[in-house]
Amino acid sequence: MRVVIAEDLLLLREGLKRLLTELGCTVVAAVDNPEALLEALERERPDLAIVDIRLPPTYRDEGLRAAIEARRRRPGTPILILSQYIEQAYVRELLADAAGGVGYLLKDRVGDVSELLTALRTVAAGGTVLDPEVTSGLLNRLGRTAALAGLTPREREVLGLMARGRSNSAIAADLVVTERAINKYINRIFSKLSLAPADSDHRRVIAVLRYLDAGGRSEPS
C-alpha cells in the first residue's frame, strides 16, 4: 500500500513512517503542510493519505480543509484523518461529499496496530472508518430517547459499529457471530428505525449518523 503522510510534528511523522513501513506499507511522501500534501496527492496518487488536522500556518484545521479540498479535486481520494480530538462538526464536514474512502480516528488508536491496519485497508478500499468516540457520544445522547428505546442492547451495539463504518463481516467478527446473524440484526434495526436500506457501507454510515444527529428522527429520503 502506497501512503502519503501529512503531519507537522517530526516525532510523529517519523514514528508513523516507521510504523507503516514495518506494517508493509510504502511511505511515498511525508510532508508537514497542506500545500505539500495536495501536491504529493496529485503527484503520487497514493492508495491512502494519513492527515493530521492541525497543520501550518495557523495550526487549526488546515489538515481537514486540505483533505476536503483534495476530495473536491478528485472525489473519493482516500484520506484517513488523525487527530488528538474528535469533533462532530468535523465528522459532518468530512462525510459531506458522500464519496467513500474517508476515516477519522483519534491518534490514540495508532497504538492498536491490527486495528490501525484494518482502518488503513478499509479507507484505501473506499470504506469509511470513524472513531468509536464519534458514535458513542451520539448513541449516548439518544440513549434516553424513545428513538432507540425499541432496540435491544445487541442491536444498539450493531448500530454503533455500523455508524463507525464497519462492514457486515467485520461486525460479525467483532461480536463473534455469523454474518447471517448480523444481516438479520441490521434488517431489524433498519425497519425499527424506518431507515431506507443503503447500497454501500459508506452510505450506511451517513444514513445512520444523520439519523443519530437528527436526534432520532429518520429523514425523509
Binding site: 510534528l9 516525532l11 510523529l12 514514528g15 508513523l16 516507521r18 510504523l19 514495518e22 506494517l23 492541525r54 495550526y59 488528538q84 491518534k107 490514540d108 495508532v110 497504538g111 492498536d112 496496530v113 491490527s114 490501525l116
Partner: peptide, 25 residues
Amino acid sequence: ERDLHDGVQARLVSLSMVLGLLDFK
C-alpha cells in the same frame, strides 16, 4: 494547550505507537 498538543500528547502517541509495534512483533 499548544505545548501539551505538540509536547506531552505527541510523545504519548509516539510511545503508544512504539508499544503497538512491539506488540505486533
